[in-house]
């Protein structure tokens, strides 16, 4: 996919905010001294009187956003995933989640692909943290097109939303003119019957690459882009489990508490005979390095997804007779 255009979804976030800001006067954007990195500066340039820097104070920012929401504004509160979901978790839980206020959290620099900054900034726990808050919508887009559509959908949704964007460029896999996004709906990118690969974020493109190689080896892989982690598209997961019998989840997140566990829970609840392997960060901290090197080293790449699928095919198959 070397020739495919790549866009970091944080850039998409900034651009989408600007477009949306032109249409809706009730949108305000908050940042915590990272407007240059989260790309909310794009909105700030266009609408300086609707952009509020809160200084390096993410906890305060989340509650300010909650207060603004009570007066009818739709605040987009932005920081790195580590600080938005991590540092300010309790503020998000108590001041936004509990009163179910209409705050949108735009968290950039999610996952290990933050790169050189190292483990302190590589948030691989945000899906787990945000999923645990009742009523919170949790999403992560695969590319530029989906990211922009997601920001629009988040604005239209009444209630708290957490969106995770990347610092690292993602190949653009969607066609902007024909793409439609709906919160809570997964997207089948490739039909297949032998195994289902369920991914989100940067790993969607990697999954497509793996599926392509699998096809050459005679394995028909279904590729599902599951941009919404919560509420999860359970129907689509169950259909994949019934029709493929094998699932590999792929996410740039800890294998604890993210998309993988959400998928496992659905399958367990319905007692389906389906093997699941989770590709993700294996309960360890990251470290410094370039994004590309890190993704490969931590197995968040097509090659490792491929190995995982092939491993699954070597396992004895459990069948109900």
């Amino acid at each position: 996919m070397a020739d495919v255009k790549k866009v970091a979804t944080r850039q998409s976030y900034g651009e989408a905010l600007k477009e949306l800001g032109a249409l809706h006067n009730d949108i305000v954007v908050l940042d915590a001294d990272l407007a240059n990195a989260t790309k909310t500066e794009i909105f700030k340039k266009a609408f300086p009187d609707r952009h509020f820097d809160c200084g390096i104070a993410e906890s305060d920012m989340m509650c300010v956003a909650a207060g603004l929401a009570t007066t009818g504004y739709v605040p987009f509160a932005s920081s790195f995933a580590m600080f938005a979901a991590g540092r300010a978790f309790e503020q998000v839980r108590n001041s936004i989640g509990y009163p179910h206020l209409n705050v949108k959290i735009g968290a950039t620099h999610g996952g290990i692909s933050v790169g050189e900054d190292g483990a302190s900034h590589q948030c691989c726990e945000d899906f787990a943290l945000m999923r645990s808050i009742p009523g919170m919508v949790v999403m992560s887009p695969a590319d530029d097109v989906e990211a922009k559509a997601m920001v629009n959908a988040a604005y239209e949704h009444d209630g708290p939303v957490y969106m995770r964007f990347s610092r690292y460029g993602a190949p653009v896999i969607h066609d902007a003119d024909s793409f439609a996004f709906e919160i809570g709906k997964g997207e089948v990118l490739w039909e297949g019957t032998d195994v289902a690969l369920i991914a989100n974020g940067l790993l969607v493109a990697e999954t497509l690459e793996a599926a392509d190689i699998l096809a050459q080896q005679g394995i028909s892989a279904r590729v599902i882009n599951m941009a919404t982690i919560k509420p999860l598209d359970e129907e689509l997961v169950l259909k994949a489990a019934r029709e493929c019998g094998k699932i590999v989840t792929c996410e740039e997140h800890s294998i604890i508490g993210g998309l993988g566990e959400a998928v496992c829970a659905v399958i367990a609840k319905h007692g389906l005979p389906c093997s699941v392997e989770r590709v993700g960060v294996n309960d360890e901290f990251g470290h410094s390095g370039s994004a590309g090197e890190l993704l490969r080293q931590f197995g968040l790449c097509a090659g490792h997804i491929l190995e995982t699928v092939l491993h699954l095919f070597r396992q004895p198959i459990y069948k109900i007779t």
Binding site: S59, C63, V64, L68, T70, Q91, S95
Partner: peptide, 15 residues
Amino acid sequence: SLGQGVSCACGMALG
């Protein structure tokens, strides 16, 4: 949860 209400009040006042 102590410390949060005053921030929320700031958001209301700003709005």
